[in-house]
Amino acid sequence: MEFRSFWVVFALLFYIPTNTAIKCYQCSSDEDPKGEDLCGAYARFDERTHIAVDCFHDESVTPGTFCVKITKQSPRMFIWDARWRTVIRRCSSVTETGVTNVCNWGVDPMGHYWEECYCTSDGCNGASSVVISFVSMTLCLLATLLLRN
Rank of each mutant, 00 (worst) to 15 (best):
S5E: 12
S5P: 07
V8F: 07
V9I: 03
A11H: 02
L12R: 03
F14Y: 10
F14N: 05
Y15L: 15
Y15P: 00
A21L: 04
I22P: 00
S28A: 09
D30A: 13
E31F: 10
D32C: 07
D32W: 10
D32A: 01
E36R: 11
D37G: 00
L38N: 12
L38K: 15
G40P: 01
Y42K: 13
Y42D: 03
A43Q: 12
R44T: 13
R44N: 08
R44I: 10
F45W: 05
F45M: 05
D46E: 05
E47A: 00
E47L: 00
I51A: 15
I51C: 03
I51S: 14
A52H: 09
V53N: 03
D54Q: 02
D54K: 08
D54T: 01
C55P: 10
D58Y: 04
E59I: 06
V61W: 13
T62A: 11
P63W: 07
T65V: 11
T65C: 06
F66Q: 09
C67P: 09
V68E: 15
K72D: 06
K72V: 14
K72W: 11
Q73P: 00
S74V: 02
F78T: 07
I79N: 12
A82F: 08
R83T: 06
R83S: 15
R85H: 09
T86L: 09
C91G: 00
S93Q: 14
S93H: 14
E96S: 10
E96N: 09
E96Y: 09
T97E: 13
G98H: 04
V102T: 03
C103I: 05
C103T: 09
P109G: 02
H112C: 05
W114T: 00
W114D: 06
E115C: 08
E115W: 07
E115F: 07
E115Y: 06
C119G: 05
